[in-house]
Amino acid sequence: MVSAAAVAASVLDPELPVLTLADLGVLREVREQGERVVVTITPTYSGCPALDEMRADLTRALTAAGYTDVEVRTALAPAWTTDWISEEGLRKLAEHGIAPPARIGPRAAGPVPLTLEPPAARVACPRCGSANTRELSRFGSTACKALRSCADCKEPFEHIKEI
């Protein structure tokens, strides 16, 4: 029998199916207690509609692997950060035309500074590699993505925004 941790780690993210839930960093813990498996996941954003789908997919995969007593818990704290996306996850995103987030490290204490202009961060185009890209919108097709376009190859692309 494949370990519960290995089964859970192989489940794909429903909105970014190039990544596993483990790559994305939302899979926080898998515990086997005798017959019982307790999986803990965390949402990317408070309103992420994929969370329920993740629960169902985890339960389905573990049940198919022979685990009969599966509980999927949600942990809100500590809050998810894009820094939890694995190196492998970043590589897969870029390969599939989605610009991966930069590493941001822990947030400084005190008020969050106001940003009055689109950030100058140089996000490379995942198609041609050009750094000559600009932000079209801070909000994209899902809560975790922004929309950018490349001035060199003229293609629009998505970027996982850093949080």
Binding site: S46, L76, L116, P118
Partner: peptide, 26 residues
């Protein structure tokens, strides 16, 4: 513990909302 956890997640989200509104105001 719940208010604290909801707030910690919300800070990251609402910071984007505020900056979006500020940029449109300009």
């Amino acid at each position: 513990p719940v208010l604290s956890a909801v707030a910690a997640k919300g800070v990251k989200e609402v910071a984007y909302h505020r900056d979006h509104a500020a940029q449109w105001t300009l």
